[in-house]
Amino acid sequence: MRRLDLAETPLREVNAALQVPVSGETSWEIVNPRGAHALAVGLDAPIDVGIRGSAGYYCAGMNKQATVHVHGSVGPGVAENMMSGTVIVEGDASQYAGATGHGGLLAIKGNASSRCGVSMKGIDIVVHGDIGHSSAFMAQTGNLVVLGDAGDALGDSIYEARLFVRGSVRSLGADCVQKEMRPEHLELLARLLDRAGADARPEEFKRYGSARRLYNFDVDNATSY
């Protein structure tokens, strides 16, 4: 394991070391992150990165392959546009967690704020706590699992992403409806919960998704757009 200290090493050097890992080094620890923005972004190797503390905006942004484990909380846009790999946050996450993510797994052990999974494009997000309002806005594909409650306007203008919520949903956004939980969904959910280390039973969840009423313009739906 190699340790990088952000109190001594500039962000650029830390990210450069992680982006082009010296041969053989697969395990990294970052200490004193002190809320640094854009930390561990653009990684593209099957390495493990532990962040000892809290990070700022866009932690692990555009991640590919790497496993980034934050032992603290994160600011807005954690794992934004993630392609693959795993990002685990022990604490809470601010707005836009997993925004536009294409793949990989984002597991948040605490709560996530508003717009969690906004425009998601294939990523799997599992939030152990609650999520804020306007989450999964325009969510395209992928899965969002919430063990706690969801705020207002969940899944507004959603496309084909699947939303699973165990707790209450304050309100559903335009074109988002509760859907039948079929065996394949229970199976999928069981796998996701397992991968995210979440202690919950799939049967406890409700599934939400697109009613597909806004996919094509209809003048009678004009007020919903």
């Binding site: 923005h37 653009g42 866009y58």
Partner: peptide, 13 residues
């Protein structure tokens, strides 16, 4: 400003 920082960090400035 932070978004631009992120894009620069991803592409090595």
């Amino acid at each position: 400003e932070i978004k631009i920082l992120e894009l620069r960090e991803i592409t090595g400035w």
